[in-house]
């Protein structure tokens, strides 16, 4: 029996006049294309000097309605988090993803800040996560899913506080992919590029923040390049 698959593919092939199998050389060219033989076309605004990355990331992030604060040392995190929550009238209660990187933060100095280490669910209001890399051109953070970083962490809570290392800010999305290809062998189940809080324009084209994902995104940029 001829399957749908065969029917569709053979129709395409015959419309292309490519009924015969491709020559080896043609396949090689296509395979090379898939391995990145075509150089990307990155606009000027996405080509950023190393020393301008932080500045550009900050302004882009604000441009997509994230709030930003910059810290010089990891030890400042609890204070900053506490301050942010108070300023924004958010309950002093956060969920911190249980992973190696965030485990080193000492939250004990702020006993009024309730910290739970777990993966967030729909009942958790505020989550504290760290980003894989960040993209200066668009103020985007990149999250790769893993056993330590479930994708739902970035969508269920109302507020997302994200640790961004300055050393992990890249210029453009293409650079983020480059880092990923270098560091990771196989593609993670999900790669999520997040630019600011969730939003919708579906009611009479008014932009409203906080559609289904976080209403607020706060970025703590740790200037670890200093």
């Amino acid at each position: 029996m001829i399957t749908n698959r065969e029917r569709i593919l053979s129709k395409i092939k015959s419309n292309l006049g490519k009924e015969k199998d491709r020559a080896k050389i043609d396949i090689d060219i296509l395979e090379a294309r898939l391995k990145g033989s075509m150089p990307s076309l990155i606009p000027k605004r996405g080509i950023i000097q190393q020393d301008k990355l932080l500045e550009k990331f900050e302004s882009s992030a604000r441009g997509v309605d994230s709030s930003v604060s910059i810290i010089d040392d990891l030890s400042e995190i609890p204070k900053e988090v506490k301050y942010y929550l108070t300023q924004n009238n958010i309950a002093s209660k956060i969920v911190v993803l249980p992973n190696k990187e965030l485990d080193s933060i000492d939250w004990n100095k702020y006993p009024t800040l309730e910290v739970t280490k777990k993966f967030p669910d729909e009942k958790d209001e505020t989550v504290f996560v760290s980003s894989y890399v960040a993209i200066a051109e668009t103020g985007t953070i990149v999250q790769l899913s893993s056993s330590e970083n479930p994708i739902t962490s970035h969508f269920l809570p109302d507020n997302s506080i994200v640790l961004v290392k300055a050393s992990r800010i890249v210029a453009a999305a293409e650079d983020a992919f480059k880092v990923m290809r270098k560091e990771i062998n196989s593609i993670p189940r999900t790669i999520t590029l997040i630019s600011g809080p969730s939003r919708t324009g579906d009611i009479a084209l008014n932009i409203e923040l906080g559609a289904h994902g976080p209403r607020k995104v706060h970025l703590l940029i740790w200037n670890d390049t200093k």
Binding site: V64, E137, T140, I151, I187, I191, L193, I194, S195, G196
Partner: peptide
């Protein structure tokens, strides 16, 4: 927008 809020690749 310069960039949509979410772009997710699922594999």
């Amino acid at each position: 927008q310069d960039m949509a809020t979410y772009v997710t690749f699922s594999t």
